[in-house]
Simulated scan of single mutants.
Amino acid sequence: MDLIAISQSTVAIILLLGLPSLIVSMVIGLVISIFQAVTQISDASLSFVPKMIIVSIFIVISLPWIGDNIEEYTYNLWDIIITFGKTQ
């Protein structure tokens, strides 16, 4: 495994861990926007506060999954570092 493959796997793990929160944020934003359009309420905090609360709750709920993925990635990265150290 070379440096490019390590970089690609790093980007892949970042996307894998970040996309679920982003998708939840987008769905909540869409629901709130539809609610604001129907009720004609145009308050900026109505969009920001619920989204922040729901995304925070989602991140707390998904922390074990995020931790497991980061732990597995870190172990794989240390194995690669050890392998490179032995060949040099």
Rank of each mutant, 00 (worst) to 15 (best):
D43S: 15
T87P: 01
S33Q: 06
V49D: 03
L77W: 02
K86G: 00
P64Y: 08
P64A: 06
M1P: 07
I14E: 04
S62V: 05
T83V: 08
T83W: 08
I53F: 10
I57G: 02
P50D: 04
T83E: 12
V60Y: 13
A12I: 01
W65S: 10
I57T: 01
A5S: 13
S25C: 12
M26C: 09
F35V: 12
L16A: 14
V60W: 15
L19M: 14
S7Q: 05
K86F: 06
M52A: 10
S47Q: 10
V31E: 04
T10W: 08
I70N: 02
I59P: 05
I14R: 01
K51T: 15
I82N: 06
W78A: 07
P20G: 12
S25D: 05
L30D: 05
Y75Q: 11
A5V: 07
Q88M: 14
M1Q: 08
M26P: 03
S45M: 14
L15I: 10
S21F: 13
A5F: 07
S62G: 01
V27G: 05
I32W: 01
I28R: 05
Y75M: 09
L22A: 15
N69E: 12
V38E: 04
D43P: 00
S42W: 07
M26R: 02
T39N: 07
F35C: 09
I23Y: 04
D68R: 11
A12Y: 06
P64S: 10
I59N: 13
L3E: 11
L30N: 06
G18L: 06
V11Y: 04
S56K: 01
S7D: 01
G85S: 12
S25L: 11
L63F: 06
V55I: 15
G29L: 13
F58V: 03
L46W: 05
D79R: 13
V49I: 15
D79S: 11
S33L: 09
S47L: 09
A37C: 05
I32M: 11
D2T: 04
I41M: 13
L63H: 01
A12F: 09
N76W: 00
N76M: 01
S21R: 05
L17C: 15
D43H: 13
L63W: 07
I80Q: 04
I81P: 00
I80T: 07
L77D: 02
I28G: 06
V31G: 09
I70H: 01
F48I: 15
